[in-house]
Each structure stands twice: as structure tokens, then as C-alpha cells.
Amino acid sequence: MKPDLHIVGAGLTGLTAAIEAAEHGRRVTVAEAHSRPGGRARTLANPYRANLGTHAVYVDGPWWAWLERRDLTPPIVGAPRHVGLVRAGGRLGPWPAELSQAIAALPAEAPADEAFRVWLLRYVDAKTAEAIIGVAFIFTFDHDPGRLSAAFAHQRLRRALAGYVRYVTGGWSTLVDLLAERAADLGVRIRTHTRVSALPAGPTILATSLATARQLTGDQSLTWPSARVATIDLGLRADDGPDWFRVMDLDDRIYVARYSLADLTLAPPGHELIQISAACAPGERKADAERRVRHLLDESWPGWRARVQWYRSALRTDCTGALDLPGTTWHDRPAISRGDTLTVATDQSAAPGLLAEVGIAAAQLALQQLGETPRPAKALTRA
């Protein structure tokens, strides 16, 4: 039968939109270019179950509540209680207590029209300001979060340090499988290996990247700043490893996490999975970022090179969520509604939230603009 709604992209945003629309009785078809759903939330098969880039879920956010109401929450784990190492001001060591104190002493609100660095320097010295800006890399992936809107960076800093970060057991494909199964149970047709080259006829949600949406629509206004980041994944033998779970290089904007310490299913017995993000400045090559990462690992894990069993790296652009520059907020991002029957729901759309939450909020707004209204929470829970 002809669908009531076309969705392009079976990532977290597309699957969320499909489930909500099907709950309202819509016939939904989802087109996905890859061999399986997931979008950027894909996880490799064994032996090293690496996500496509580092991923975490915030269990204090609106999307987690959405999952809970539908009994769709995946198994999750928190960070293990291992030592964390931090490089700040050229020194590699434990997290400095004075940094936590400085962040806690900042005002509760920050202005949107002022750069984060400029705002910080009114309250802390230059060295502390740069360390706080380095922390902001962890959740923005940007090479210089100090240039971003103070309101944007500060709000995310507060949430990131509040202790609500969790990791999906088995990788993000665990969650994707739950969503895809629920969508199928509701009658959603997910067509994989289907690359859309023209806009479908009828109501459509583009749950893709802005670049893909721009290509499909020809709408050059579908653009917004995002980060440029190198990702490196390592599979290593686990013998005689260090005692840290993560290393945060606030000077060089690098984040290293031994995810298999939190979730043993991510690597074979006796092995570990390490995932790394390194911010890339405009024009910086992936090879240069990899060189910086190797230097950090040499210092924090002597002998790691001899343990490497598997290695992959990539340079990722325009896929890390929106970045609001001074004078802008989420309201200024590309509008979700693009006419009577077309909406664009991406991580960079005009919707609130943190990282992937923006795409989820965009999907819900897109459905409202296509004529849907939220259902009562009681009706959303699996019997």
C-alpha cells in the first residue's frame, strides 16, 4: 500500500520518527542507504564491537524519557571507577580538583551573544579558562570551543559533568535493534540498500545529514557549522595495561576511552577496545591528528604499540552535531519545516537538546508540523 509518510534515513532520528508516526496509525516507509539501520549509530561485528565514533547517552535527557515510556531502554553501564588522566597546562595527571571548583563557581547562566572564552575570562584566569575550554571539546568535538556561544558551551558543560553519561551495552547497535524491532512491530517498512536520489512524493521527513538534505532539495540554506574530528579505534591485547579508563588531553583536544573496561562484550577475552577522538583544526590532516594521538598514548600507556591487534581511523566532518557561534542559538539553525509536506530532522536542525537529542527533538517537531500531536504517555507504554 502507498505509505502515508516517507522517511529518508534509518538512524536514531529516522527510527524515532517512524515509531511515533506508526503509533498514530500512519503507514510509514523508511529508506536506508546502508545494509542495516543505524546511521551513525552503527556498531561493528565481532571481534571488536566499535561504534562509529565515540558515543554516550545522557539519561537525564528527553530522549531517554521517550525510550522509558515505551519500554525501549537498552542495557547501559556507567564509567568504571578507574583512575582518569588529564593533561592541562602541559601536565598529565589526575583530574585537578581546582578545575572542578572553578567550574562549579561559574554563574548558572551565560550569554548567547558572547564567546565562551571571553565570558570565562571574566571569572577565571587564562590558564583555567583554557582548561575549561578543553573540557568543552569532549562534548562539542570542536578544535576551539572557546570561540562558540557562551550559553551553548556552558549549558552543555553543566550537563556533561552532572554524572548522567552512560554507555549502551554491546554498542549502539543494541539500541538500534530495539528501535528497528519496535518499528517493524508497528508495521513500519524499513528498506535497506535504498539510496534516495530524489525527494519522494507526499509527506516526507529527511532524517539525514544536512549535506544530504541539501543535495536532495537543492536548498542551499541547509547548512550550519559542525566540528571536524579524527577518530581512531584500537584493538589491543590486555596484558599489563594501565589503571586508567580515560585520558582527556585538554591542551591538545584529545579524548581516549577504554570502553571494554566498562563493557566486556566489546572485545574478545584478553583484549581491549579503545576509541579515540581528536579535534582537527581547519586544514589539519588526519595523519597529523594521528601523530598527536600516538604521542599521548606513548606517554600514558608505554608499550601500547606492541599490543595492537586491530586499527582503524577516519576523518569525520559535519556529523558531530550543531555548533552555535556567538549571537546564535538553536532557534537560528535551519528550520525543520520546508513546506507543507517536507520536513528536515537532523542533529543540526532548529531544535533544542545536546548532540543526538537535537535530531530526536527535530523528528518530533517534524511530525507535529505534518499534522501529528503527541499521544498521552500511558498509551506509549508496552503492555
Rank of each mutant, 00 (worst) to 15 (best):
P62R: 14
K2N: 13
R166A: 08
L222H: 09
W64K: 00
G146Y: 09
A21N: 01
V358E: 11
L250E: 03
Q368C: 04
T140N: 12
A363H: 05
G327F: 13
L355C: 04
I254W: 09
I103N: 08
W63F: 11
E109I: 07
I254A: 07
T128Y: 12
T217E: 01
G11H: 05
P242D: 14
A88G: 12
L175I: 02
A379S: 12
R338A: 11
P352H: 05
W304F: 06
F141D: 10
G353V: 06
D249C: 09
S337E: 13
L186G: 02
I232R: 15
R91T: 11
A97I: 11
I132R: 08
R253C: 08
I205H: 04
A377K: 03
E20I: 01
R87T: 12
A126G: 00
R375V: 01
T192G: 09
I276K: 01
D219G: 06
D288N: 06
E114H: 01
A345M: 11
D125P: 09
Q369E: 14
L297F: 01
Q368W: 00
L342C: 05
G9K: 06
V59T: 14
I254G: 07
E109S: 07
W172I: 00
T329C: 01
V83H: 14
A262Y: 03
D4A: 08
D332W: 00
A110E: 09
A362P: 06
T346H: 15
L179Q: 04
